[in-house]
């Protein structure tokens, strides 16, 4: 158990990060420090590089240049083992809903009885209580997204990356997921999350990273970025977001 007040949350430090394909810069982040402890929300238009940045932070892709550090040390296998990620289009195993959760709990070598118990409480928490035996691939889009989030939480991560986790959810499911995310955050889990929902950013974020065309155009306290954005790009994005 980590102490929420004094324990150091996973500080993520990015320096000189760049990825280019076919002569086009997809990601160019000279410096970015995500030091929490509250949820970090990443906003920006389609193709801005948000998912790419998450992949780099999670160590899934090796950038062409630059590096990612966690708590001052270059991201290593031990860090990655304590990170979890919910992908923009989650991949569920071709097994039952319960087996998808059991898969990650087994990897944490949890004893059988405890796993069973944990699966039940996770499914209840995510509103999938009656669906334990259903093939995961037959879930609806929103149910699948919820299961993917539950599976990530089952890993009991220190850092949780979420790539638009509520994009396919109805308002009440969104609320349920937001509560789960906030609870995790209060337990000391570092949350880094991509969203297109400005209201969601307002509800969850302690700091906001605004991205555009592979660059971080603004990073600051949530209220400040939302109420008084400094960059033209942020202003335009937020204005567009308010219209819809």
């Amino acid at each position: 158990m980590r102490d929420v007040v004094t324990g150091a949350p996973g500080i993520l430090d990015v320096s000189g990060l760049s990825i280019a394909r076919n002569g086009k810069a997809l990601l160019d982040v000279p410096h970015l420090c995500l030091d929490g402890p509250g949820p970090t929300l990443i906003l920006g238009p389609n193709g801005a590089g948000k998912s790419l940045l998450l992949r780099c932070l999670h160590g899934l892709i090796q950038p062409d240049r630059g590096r990612v550090c966690q708590n001052g040390a270059v991201l290593n296998a031990r860090h990655k083992a304590r990170q979890a990620m919910v992908f923009q289009s989650p991949v569920l195993l071709r097994r039952s809903v319960a087996a998808n959760l059991d898969f990650v709990l087994k990897r944490r070598s949890m004893p059988r009885a405890e796993r069973k118990h944990r699966i039940e409480s996770l499914l209840d928490e995510g509103g999938l209580g009656g669906k334990a035996r259903q093939p995961a691939r037959s879930l609806s889009g929103g149910e699948a997204q919820r299961l993917a989030i539950l599976r990530a939480l089952a890993l009991d991560p220190e850092t949780l990356f979420l790539d638009e986790p509520t994009s396919a959810l109805d308002p009440s499911a969104t609320q349920m997921i937001e509560r789960m995310i906030l609870r995790a955050s209060e337990r000391g889990v570092r949350i880094v999350m991509v969203t297109h929902d400005i209201g969601q950013a307002r509800r969850l974020a302690s700091d906001i990273v605004m991205m555009q065309a592979g660059r971080v155009v603004e990073h600051g306290k949530a209220m400040q970025v939302l109420e008084a954005p400094e960059s033209d790009e942020s202003r335009r994005y937020l204005a567009g977001g308010l219209v819809t």
């Binding site: 992949r55 899934l60 979890a84 990620m85 992908f87 991949v91 195993l93 071709r94 097994r95 990650v104």
Partner: peptide, 27 residues
Amino acid sequence: EEYSEQLRSLGVSRLASVPVLLWDARL
């Protein structure tokens, strides 16, 4: 191909992914 990133994210190595893939391809 479909599972690769997800399994890596879950910390499953290439070798350890073989039984996972075989089981999920069972049909």
